[in-house]
């Protein structure tokens, strides 16, 4: 089990972020979560630049991406990740309010690994986030880090 690998959560809405963190806390994986407030921050983290210049090298276990975010939106981040050979193996889960067919098909065609619609009901939301965190952060075996990878 790769306990050290962090979970990257991209969420611009502080309330959604807080609720998600509350769910993660219940699962006791909150300390592994790195919260980004927009798409640009996600890319900064992945490429170790800006405020993340001195972070520990290595890809996160999973990226939870909101679709609608300021600066760089979720689909753009997804496109960057899936067109970069080093980042491509990172599992990307779209976590969004949108159930629109257009968003679904575009996400999958860009290479998203999963697409989850945030349930309105808090209990369902909590259990969804918990299960996602559990599965991608603990159960799923992340891709092996290639030597010399990371930026």
């Amino acid at each position: 089990m790769t306990a050290i690998k962090p979970i990257l959560l991209a969420e611009d809405n502080p309330r959604d972020a807080e609720l998600a963190m509350a769910a993660m806390e219940e699962q006791q994986i909150a300390d592994k979560v790195v919260l980004c407030h927009d798409g640009a921050e996600v890319l900064d983290y992945l490429y170790c630049r800006g405020q993340f210049t001195s972070r520990l090298k290595g890809n996160p276990a999973v990226v939870f991406l909101d679709l609608k975010m300021p600066k760089v939106n979720g689909l753009e981040v997804l496109r960057v990740i899936k067109s970069d050979a080093t980042l491509r193996p990172i599992p990307v889960v779209m976590l969004t309010s949108s159930r629109e067919e257009r968003d679904l098909s575009e996400s999958y065609s860009l290479g998203a690994n999963a697409y989850v619609v945030k349930p309105v009901e808090f209990h369902q939301f909590v259990s969804a986030v918990k299960e996602l965190g559990m599965f991608w952060g603990l159960i799923n075996e992340p891709p092996p880090e290639r030597p010399g990878s990371g930026h």
Partner: peptide, 14 residues
């Protein structure tokens, strides 16, 4: 679909 759902989720969540 996107923006109206978020506050509802917050109401229920909080």
């Amino acid at each position: 679909s996107h923006d109206l759902r978020a506050p509802l989720r917050h109401i229920d969540g909080y």
